[in-house]
């Protein structure tokens, strides 16, 4: 008993230490965002306008929704490659159920259930079969992709009612609905990770799974929780996607996978686990979106755009590496 309490105290203090560096790294990200924003404000006369900022937030919100659950998975030291395919399958089934029943609540429930179910399968593979998360979720990526292909058989489902489209393209008190959803999830996740015991346990698992288990953390149950949440947010992102573009096809998820992983990593999460935060992921989404937005505003040659985006991502990661080196020297 005393053994468990002591190691318990150990990981609590470890998290306190981690938090110090975490806060520094969040400042760093906000600084990168600020520099990108400052540059675009000087270079264009349209970046710092209310409509463009609303635009930017709305564009970033879909990325954030998809990345929110993935952040938790990275914190426990896992990875979820199935989020893009999950988004596609959830969007397709939501669309299909709506067309079959004309019921918006039923359609949305289908999308959320699909997302969570895929997450649950991932969690069983990772927590019980002990498959490496990379391989397990790579396999479910294909299964979901295949199911979506089979279900849609090359078709596109389009045309949804205003009450459904409101989730992606509506406004509430002048704020785009996806931005409101993003804010709610941001607050919820931040409180969850910073204030709840379970949140702290996730960092402990990611830092050292064995130590976490020995100190009495129910690792399996926590893994189930994070993979289900990752699936759920991906499914939810699928619904918001559908509501925003007013159509669904089987191919919508694949192009989102690498950008969403980039968003979480730019946001300060680590592929080795134990790091990451909701606000960090938000700043990652904002940095990436601001770069794409800025390139359109500046009308940069379309041949140069991928390279420019890559360089900014590199810059963000390089800054992080330099600051870590600096911290170690201290």
């Amino acid at each position: 008993m005393s053994e468990a309490t002591r190691s318990g105290r150990d990981w609590h203090s470890a998290i306190d230490k981690l938090r110090g560096s975490e806060i520094e790294s969040i400042f760093l990200r906000l600084a990168v965002l600020f520099v990108v924003g400052l540059f675009l404000t000087i270079a264009t006369d349209t970046f710092l306008t209310q409509t463009n900022l609303v635009n930017l937030l709305r564009q970033a919100s879909l990325m954030f929704l998809l990345a929110a659950g993935l952040t938790l998975v990275l914190i426990v030291g896992g990875i979820d490659l199935s989020v893009g395919a999950n988004l596609a399958l959830s969007a397709c089934l939501t669309a299909g159920v709506y067309k079959a029943t004309n019921s918006v609540p039923l359609a949305i429930a289908t999308g959320l259930a699909t997302g969570a179910a895929i997450g649950f399968v991932n969690s069983l593979l990772v927590a019980f079969l002990k498959l490496p998360p990379f391989l397990a979720t790579f396999a479910t990526l294909w299964v979901c992709q295949g199911l979506a292909f089979f279900y849609m058989s090359g078709s596109v489902i389009y045309g949804f009612p205003p009450e459904m489209r409101a989730l992606g393209s509506g406004f509430w008190l002048g704020i785009p609905v996806p931005v409101i959803l993003m804010t709610i999830i941001l607050i919820f996740l931040t409180v969850f990770l910073r204030r709840s015991t379970i949140g702290h346990e996730l960092y402990a698992i990611g830092s050292n799974a064995t130590a976490a288990r020995l100190s009495g953390i129910p690792v399996r149950r926590r893994l189930i929780l994070v993979y289900v949440l990752s699936g759920l947010t991906a499914g939810f992102a699928g619904i918001v996607y559908l509501a925003r573009v007013n159509s669904a096809d089987a191919g919508v998820g694949e192009p989102l996978l690498l950008p969403v992983i980039a968003v979480v990593l730019i946001g300060g999460a680590s592929l080795y686990g134990g790091r990451g935060s909701a606000i960090g992921t938000l700043s990652g989404a904002l940095i990436l979106t601001a770069v794409l937005n800025g390139m359109n505003l500046l009308a940069i040659d379309s041949n140069l755009q991928p390279m420019a985006a890559g360089l900014v991502v590199l810059l963000a990661l390089a800054l992080e590496a330099v600051s870590k080196k600096h911290q170690r020297k201290k």
Partner: peptide
């Protein structure tokens, strides 16, 4: 992407 690019172009 086309939707977002167009949103951005409408700004500029």
């Amino acid at each position: 992407q086309a939707l977002q690019v167009m949103e951005n172009l409408i700004q500029s």
